[in-house]
Design a protein around this nucleic acid. Structure first.
Lengths: 348, 348
DNA sequence: TTTTTCTACGCAATCGTTCCCGGTGACGAT
DNA sequence: ATCGTCACCGGGAACGATTGCGTAGAAAAA
């Protein structure tokens, strides 16, 4: 089943004009008389002419579409980012194509190649938690292909980057736990390859030191898949709770880590926050409905999407190669709820 | 910044061949000698040649990409469906382009036109809750454009349709509430325009009648935006709880309705399920972490995506116009948890 | 040797659109 | 009468790839 569309040729034939004249009339060129323009415009309106974007892309060497690579769209943080991306992209006449890595390096590579071969004009990337080797992105970048990293960025490439102040987010969350009187604060972290993991752990560590508490490696556990698999979270937490001094608070550094951590604590029948407090990075809009309601570091996801897209489109439409790359850092926000409140505070 | 790619011409020039020979060599045509093939293949490998899909689309009048229209990707049900769609589409060499209506008819129309103008080969649609007028889809369909509806389907168009047995899902959920001893079961429903709303309400009503209970219109409240806005849910529930005989159980017929209903009950400090029981249609993977854990009708979202995509691609690749349209109905599954358990049952 | 049959390649059209060159009349200026 | 200057429009190449057709040269058949 082919779907036949109206072309500029059909208009030209019907009106006894050349395709060039029709094309110019449609683009409102000064070389075309008002009468001819009117004729062409009215006729093309009548037969519902739609310019063929494929043909345009071929000529103009651009497709007016941008690719997005994230680990999962079934993740509030990323779907909010995507909404932010769309809001800007559609405004500027760009289409977006979304691809998911599902935290797999191999799929990320396939997706990048797929998108690149689909003639997209630029790429918005948040790398998978497995990603270490960057040759799939570098080869594009080296050829001048516009790429903007957001959230999970990489150091080795000179591009625009948009992130959240992860250090600050983790610092404040940890400090909040300390001020609430928790003594053994563990960190449930994502893949060690990720920039966000490193930054958040730094914030965690610094908060401990600034408050004259000891930082102990044993209280930091990594989950390669960012908590996507319950098993990895379970293993990490099992190890934490085998320690002599069991943790009395946990800071989880990603959405799925946070929820799966809560799931674990529920299964083990540990009371939150009485047995263990929990603060997590999360953009879920259900954190208030959870039991207990969850204290979270919330990230301005929509804005991340917007800013990244603005930078990308700016680079795409720049006449000369961009060499001056920006690094935008947006502030996170700490929401304190039941999961990290001591009994005393809850009452008051 | 334009991004220059390697073309078949570059290869031809470098090797002193014609573009046709190169093209045929790459496609492994019998007309090309093994030596020439080897030469071309090795060289194009070396310079990392990638065929230009835009040029191909122009020639073949197909883009090997399909459009998806859903209300929100930030909704577990739909993001799971999208994963199902992708799994099939990528397998068959198709790309997917996702557009969100955000439950707005206007945006749906814009998206449809946008996608159609982007030369997609087919469309997977779940209409917005505002959609009544279907001319934007009909005009495409009349021209033979392949469209498959899923979940929220429409009667007026003859196409493939993939749905869940909504009647059964609602029937079983309602029956479960009845068997648990609830007497005044209210229905919190989505937009009345939607097929799913009608089907679910039918199941609800039939279950009441089959169990010799009265069906009362007053116990059915609609939310035009499917619960996306907390306000509409609040209004609906306020009305329900103003009734003389207050409901002692609620069946919510969509994801956001369910969670916002729970949010309302929490705010009003109504105990679930002691004051009011709740069963909802939901594909959230956090229902076990909510307080109380939520009884849900879960839909096979991934499969819906897969089946829809198979039908669509089958239609796209069919040689002659398809006139025999299928209607696939997949079974939902009821999960009973705390939110609908009487105290007595919880103990046992 | 001549004719036929392959093999292996090139030419050119095609898809829909844009745009660089032209070209053709009309009209005023010289 | 001739030229320049417009206004207005058409021809055709180009974008990258595929493909029907034509054909040179060699091998096989006559």
């Amino acid at each position: 089943m082919k779907f036949e569309a109206v072309t500029i040729k059909d208009i030209a034939r019907a009106l006894g004009l050349s395709t060039s004249t029709v094309s110019r009339a449609l683009r409102d060129s000064y070389e075309i008389s008002p009468e001819t323009k009117k004729l062409v415009l009215e006729y093309s309106e009548k037969i519902n002419y739609q310019p063929n974007p494929i043909a345009l892309s071929l000529k103009e060497k651009r497709s007016r579409s941008i690719g997005i690579i994230v680990c999962e769209i079934a993740n509030s943080f990323f779907s909010q980012i995507i909404n932010g991306i769309e809001s800007i992209a559609y405004d500027k006449g760009y289409n977006v194509i979304i691809a998911q890595s599902h935290e797999s390096y191999d799929r990320e590579v396939i997706n990048v190649q797929y998108l690149a071969s689909r003639s997209i004009d630029g790429l918005l990337v948040s790398v998978s938690s497995e990603t270490q080797d960057l040759k799939h992105l570098k080869s594009l970048h080296d050829r001048g292909f516009p790429i903007v990293f957001f959230d999970r960025i990489v150091d080795e490439m000179q591009t625009h980057k948009v992130i959240v102040d992860n250090f600050k987010g983790a610092y404040e969350a940890t400090e909040h736990l300390i001020k609430s009187g928790y003594k053994n604060i563990a960190a449930l972290a994502g893949s060690e390859y990720l920039s966000i993991t490193k930054e958040r752990l730094c914030g965690y560590q610094q908060a401990l030191l600034d408050n004259k508490m000891v930082f102990d490696e044993a209280y930091v556990k990594h989950c390669l898949h960012g908590g996507m698999l319950y098993n990895e979270v379970e293993n990490a937490l099992n190890q934490l709770f085998k320690l002599k001094k069991k943790p009395d608070a946990i800071i989880a550094s990603a959405d799925k880590l946070t929820t799966n951590c809560l799931r674990y604590l529920k299964k083990r029948k540990l009371k939150v926050p009485d047995d263990v407090a929990l603060v997590g990075f999360s953009n879920l809009d259900l954190t208030d409905l959870l039991s207990p309601s969850l204290s979270v570091v919330r990230q301005p996801a929509f804005e991340i999407g917007q800013v990244s897209t603005e930078l990308l489109i700016q680079q795409i439409e720049s006449k000369r190669p961009v060499t001056d790359f920006e690094r935008r850092i947006l502030p996170p926000q700490l929401f304190i709820r039941e999961s990290s409140m001591k009994e005393a505070e809850k009452v008051k």
